[in-house]
Design a binder for these strands. Sequence first.
DNA 1: GCGGCCAATACTGGGTGCAATGTCCGATAG
DNA 2: CTATCGGACATTGCACCCAGTATTGGCCGC
Lengths: 236, 236
Amino acid sequence: MSGSPFRGIHGAVVAHLGELIVRGDVSPGEPLDPVRLEGELGVSRTVVREALRVLAAKGMVDARPKRGTIVRPREEWALLDADVLRWQAQNRADDAFLSDLAEVRDIVEPAGARLAAARRTDGDLATLRDALAIMADPDASVDAVIEADLVFHRALLAAAHNELLWQMEQVIATGLRARDLLVYGRGPWTESVPAHRAVLDAVAAGDAGGAERAVRDLLAQADRDVRAITSGKESE
Amino acid sequence: MSGSPFRGIHGAVVAHLGELIVRGDVSPGEPLDPVRLEGELGVSRTVVREALRVLAAKGMVDARPKRGTIVRPREEWALLDADVLRWQAQNRADDAFLSDLAEVRDIVEPAGARLAAARRTDGDLATLRDALAIMADPDASVDAVIEADLVFHRALLAAAHNELLWQMEQVIATGLRARDLLVYGRGPWTESVPAHRAVLDAVAAGDAGGAERAVRDLLAQADRDVRAITSGKESE
DNA sequence: GCGGCCAATACTGGGTGCAATGTCCGATAG
DNA sequence: CTATCGGACATTGCACCCAGTATTGGCCGC
């Protein structure tokens, strides 16, 4: 519900074709005949056309007369697009993709914390404090804690007051959601409240270097937990 | 030409509506009546509908029955989308936007250089060397030098071998193109070849810390040049 | 025999009218 | 006063239409 799966049949077609391409069922350069799809998917021209337009907007296909509608090479896709990222997370959740994602987060989030320490408002701090309170609440449900964790990281980047940086975090966090669920779901994970509190304290104190270091520690800790679980329970 | 302005009338309508929204001519929450646009722009429903679908794919509008098609709040837009970024650079080129853009670059590119130092292949180094050679060539045209500069930075991030990071650089570099043109065009700018060479040397040597520092220096130098010119020639 | 020019063709691009669906609002009845 | 039902309106989806254009193959001339 939080994502942006378009509504209706059109949305289903967009998602279907998007996943088809991301999964590699149709390789770059290969044609994607609209009239064929029209029959295969049991929908009308309008739906197929609009779906292909959406994919074209994301740089995934290129339609021109006579040549047909072909899949563009992977490096031209809008990989940072929320939908494309989600399709990849669901269909191509290999190690390379997840490690790329984690790597970007390791870069963006500490830098964001550094800026947040310098620019946070009282409102930002209040949001962070509220989220942390839920995470530390022993009575809170697991879902509520996971949600609060997301809110915390979102608020942290919001406190940097840089729209583009905030979007990057948004997009990365969404992509890593599956991984995080895995970690929270099973196995003993390191209690992360103290690490989060360290981040909050440094940001509140306006300590840029401290905030950056605290976030680095936090991510490193989370990464260790993931490795411990994924290597320990290799089966399914 | 290098961007991705869609072709045909449809592309013109998408760009028009996109810029309309980015410019703030229609504020978030306001309706965007398809049939009215149909008449105003002199195009048919098909074009308007597909254009709105594209904008919906970028999170800029939301269409639902009875309520109509409304502009979504700014924080839900896909600001990292190449088209959205270009529309902003052209129509809302205020300081806040440009500084956000530069800030992200200051974060992404040094980190990218650090990774590049560890992962660069011989091919990566060759591309970097070729680009630098053109930049250092006294006989090269101004356009060729600018192009080579872009190629250098693109190759640097490509050498990090992280698809997502590379996309971010792509998107940021495109957004800063206008600014760079300004700097190259007028006023004395600091000769940037030595700074670029320092980056290349560090990456070639596999010196992660050195590469990161060299890029930081390079960006700081470029930033100083921009400030010198924009503050010196405030007119126009 | 080879090369350039021209026409047939097959695709996307753009347009129109209409049926269906879903949602919001208001009216009406309890 | 509230809850439920129905109607209206805007999007959604469908079928069919013609026009423009780029590519390809054939044809003609050299």
